[in-house]
Design a protein around this nucleic acid. Structure first.
Lengths: 238, 238
DNA sequence: CGCAAGAATGCTGTATGCAGGATTACAGGA
DNA sequence: TCCTGTAATCCTGCATACAGCATTCTTGCG
């Protein structure tokens, strides 16, 4: 997302360098109603406008979003597969509540993915990519200094996503992103006290320097520690 | 699945030992059309009846399965989120083709998950659970001896799923299961030559004995080796 | 004979209608 | 007062209908 690590190249690139330009061309991305709805509903859940355990009223939500029930239902099925909501037969969709156990389990999986990504990134990432992650980190430091919470938080998320991307393993990055988005709400409300940020920022700094040194083991160790600390920082808001 | 490691307890358990019986009660599971369809279509893809890259004709498939387009479309959205099919705007659903790169990436993620599960299982799993996995392994050995491919293959899958379950991390197990199901087809056609099984069987044997000794590092090492070997075994069928 | 433009067909995307089951409200009895 | 049985209401699950875009076929022209 931010920082251009996984830059979206959309639309037409008309520069004609033989056929290579055609190969790189990405199909025109039309924002479909489906994607739109999935995104909107996901945000509604993550931002807490749809409370955990609450049932989702199809007619009501459909009217609120200005669409009929059909595309809405399809979007709900999609989100159900992501695990954000649960489909109860005969009773429709219910917003899933994350138990402390769920969060703990997800953080452990996240740690497994990120440490793996770390090892891969240390051997595969280019210097330019690493520099790019460093810039993102510096960027985040700026918002840390001014206590700009939302922007700080976004960079934080982008940093972890960026690390996953640097692994060069697209599937890993996608899986990581999926889990991270499900934890977003928890982590966001868990970051309401800026004094909690200090530790996280220090750990990020250590991660970047380990990555720049391409010290895989140190990087993996810091990541494990970082997510362990995240668990502590987040624990009281679940 | 097989072996009772994650035994499904369905129906009513009417034994009244205070309230604990009520707590353990699982809501009555009704097979919904949605689940039915998701399962059927997933199998159609995994078993190769729906070829990669081919478009899915909604009217046609719906008629073949005896349902209207609405529930069918909803099932397709669900599967799209799992990554088995791709939703192309204006052109419907297309069966996703796994590139060698995809498979390699997925195996790396699987390795990350299974080694993590291994470490957790070594410290958390009960002796009974480990014994249960051992039985599953012995069971598999029987089918190995008689070269009963399908049954052998099922136990093989169940073995890995069982290991993930023993981690005690339900989210890890679910994530693992999702990836494994997407790789199922590749691994199945990759196991057509029984002479390939010998290595896999030996590795499984080593895994079980490492688990019984609760030697986390050895177990993790074997798993990494096992999945590396899987990559080799599978490579020529992609 | 090949190519391009236009028409025709077919399919997807969305809306709406209807049946069956779930939830709620209420009344009667313990 | 609380529980149980019943009726009414509401909502979900599925089918069908229609509009708009893709694709394909056809026809005319170079």
């Amino acid at each position: 997302m931010l920082g251009g690590l996984a830059a979206e190249r959309r639309g037409m690139d008309v520069s004609n360098e033989g056929l290579s330009a055609l190969d790189q061309m990405v199909p025109v991305s039309r924002r479909t109603l489906h994607d739109e709805l999935v995104g909107r509903i996901r945000d509604l859940i993550i931002e807490g406008h749809l409370a955990p355990e609450s049932r989702i009223h199809e007619g009501q939500l459909g009217q609120a979003l200005g669409v009929s029930r059909t595309p809405l239902r399809e979007a709900l099925k999609f989100l159900a597969s992501e695990g954000l909501i649960e489909l109860v037969p005969g009773r429709g969709a219910v917003v899933r509540r994350l138990t402390p156990r769920d969060v703990r389990d997800m953080l452990d999986v996240l740690a497994a993915l990120e440490t793996t990504a770390a090892r891969l990134a240390c051997q595969r990432a280019s210097d330019a990519e690493i520099a790019s992650l460093r810039r993102l980190h510096d960027d985040m430091m700026g918002y840390y200094a001014t206590r700009t919470r939302l922007e700080y938080f976004k960079r934080n998320q982008a940093f972890h996503a960026g690390l996953a991307t640097l692994s060069g393993n697209a599937f890993l990055a996608a899986t990581h992103e999926g889990i991270q988005s499900r934890l977003r709400r928890i982590r966001f409300v868990g970051s309401d006290a800026p004094e909690k940020w200090a530790g996280a920022v220090a750990e990020h700094e250590e991660m970047v320097s380990a990555l720049e040194a391409r010290d895989a083991e140190r990087l993996a160790a810091v990541i494990a520690r970082h997510l362990e600390a995240t668990w502590v920082r987040v624990q009281d808001v679940i």
